[in-house]
Amino acid sequence: MAKTSILTELKNFMMRGNVVDMAVGVIVGGAFGKIVSSLVSDVIMPPIGILIGGVDFSDLSIVLKEATADAAAVTINYGTFLQTVFDFMIIATVIFFALKGISKLRTKKEEEPAAPPAPSKEEVLLTEIRDILKEKK
Rank of each mutant, 00 (worst) to 15 (best):
I91E: 11
V94L: 00
D70Y: 04
L99G: 09
K100W: 12
S38E: 00
T127V: 10
Y78S: 08
F96N: 02
G49V: 14
I52Y: 01
K109Q: 08
S58Q: 06
F96S: 01
F86I: 15
E111A: 12
A73W: 04
G33C: 10
I90N: 14
E110P: 02
G101W: 01
T75D: 10
K65M: 06
D21E: 05
K65A: 12
A114K: 04
G25V: 11
V28G: 03
P47H: 14
V94N: 00
R16L: 10
V124T: 15
I102H: 09
I48F: 09
I62G: 08
V63A: 12
I52H: 01
P113S: 13
I90E: 03
Q83G: 06
N18E: 13
T84W: 11
K65D: 04
I35R: 06
P117N: 14
V63N: 09
L99V: 07
M22W: 11
R16K: 12
D42P: 00
K34N: 08
F81I: 15
E123S: 08
E9Y: 02
K34Y: 08
G53H: 03
T107F: 04
S38N: 02
D21P: 01
V94Q: 00
L64T: 09
M22K: 10
I91L: 10
P46K: 00
P117G: 15
I102R: 05
V20W: 12
L39M: 05
F96L: 02
V55G: 04
L64P: 03
G30E: 02
V124P: 07
K100H: 10
G30Y: 03
G29D: 07
S41E: 01
V74A: 10
S61V: 07
G101Q: 04
P47I: 13
P119A: 14
G29Y: 09
S103I: 02
S41G: 05
M15H: 03
I27K: 06
E110Q: 08
L10C: 09
S41A: 03
I102Y: 13
D56C: 07
F88D: 15
E110F: 11
L10R: 07
K109N: 06
D21V: 06
T68L: 12
A72S: 13
V43F: 03
L39R: 00
F13G: 05
G49H: 10
M15S: 05
G79E: 15
